[in-house]
Design a protein around this nucleic acid. Structure first.
Lengths: 195, 195
DNA sequence: CCTATTAATGAATCGCTATTCAAAAATAAA
DNA sequence: TTTATTTTTGAATAGCGATTCATTAATAGG
């Protein structure tokens, strides 16, 4: 009986992230993904149902990771709610700094799977956002955060700001230091622009 | 000599916005765009070079409009810098409220043309962002806005927040009232979350 | 050393849709 | 009218690339 050599599923996923990032979802050819992953074209279909399935798995993995890392923060009551939100922002920036291609896919291709609403992806995404909401609610309860702010709006506000800033960083990494972006985001979320 | 009937260029552009919004850029068929626009498939290629050119023109038009409307605000020294930024946010929300399909295309498809960097689009987009920057600088000069904030970062911060909130509104218009989103965005930009 | 079973392959298929272009339609001018 | 010119048309083309599947490779167990 032949036995699996290496971890092709992982290789394909990583290859796909890079090819999606460079060519965009539709510009990416399965044959190219296979080439980058160091496997045959047909092997891609051994491990994944189809092209969309690859993208789905990428996002599932991403949001699972983000959710679980955030979860480990949520317990720690040492942190105040605003510290938790800071940590959440750090978390996102850490993940994407270490994997710019993934950042690109995150920024540009998520809507493909939102169109065909697959719960696999949605699950961890919603959970992640749910935790974010939770932190905000704690902040409101402790009267650190303004109660007039809609929690659902705020979570998308922060996520959107980060998403767009990652994109501008990807387009022009020299002008934007990711560290400076991170600091500014934290500041702006907390205090806004006005003196 | 045959004479032009109606305004097919405009019809095609409007049709394309709706089809792109519903099917996504790659899912949108030229034949479908033609059908919705009430013209023959071939006519599309009389008015546009190719599919990408249609998308390009959509964004060119959008950013031109946004830029010009913002420009008319920039002179008015009656407004304070923060009022100008408020007006900028209002402007974006007004345009997209009146044309949700355009909002969808704006949110999801801009990266297609950013990949193949066309200056036509970039021109007005950059000009628009440049004006936003200008307002922020005025605010810093008048010591209304914190000087430690990076202007380039701030402009993408605001734009990104709006973009993502528009997307969540499109996905679930019942949960999110665009008016509430608008108010929250204005508040958050100015004061942040912290009491 | 066989053999059964699973893994991996990549050339061929097959559907799909952007784009083309020869023909038809409309009408201004003569 | 007739003609010349411009607009519009939509069926045909052409190429691309996702997906399939018959074949080959590897090896665990006997």
């Amino acid at each position: 009986m032949r036995v699996k050599e290496g971890n092709k599923e992982k290789d394909i996923l990583e290859g796909a992230i890079n090819v999606f990032a460079k060519e965009g979802y539709h510009g990416a050819k399965i044959s190219k993904i296979a080439e980058v992953a160091g496997v045959a074209t047909g092997s891609v279909y051994v491990y994944f149902e189809n092209k969309e399935d690859i993208l789905l798995k990428i996002f599932e993995q991403l949001w699972k990771q983000l959710y679980e890392e955030l979860l480990s923060l949520s317990d720690k009551s040492i942190f105040s709610p605003t510290e938790k939100i800071d940590a959440m922002i750090d978390l996102a920036f850490d993940v994407f700094t270490s994997n710019p291609a993934l950042a690109d896919v995150f920024v540009n291709e998520q809507h493909h799977i939102q169109r065909s609403n697959k719960t696999q992806f949605t699950n961890y995404y919603e959970k992640f956002l749910g935790l974010g909401e939770e932190f905000i609610r704690q902040g409101i309860q402790k009267k650190i955060i303004h109660g007039s702010i809609d929690v659902k709006i705020l979570r998308y506000f922060i996520l959107g700001a980060i998403r767009n800033l990652l994109q501008s960083w990807l387009n022009d990494p020299k002008t934007f230091s990711l560290n400076k972006i991170r600091q500014n985001v934290k500041y702006l979320v907390k205090y806004g622009i006005q003196k």
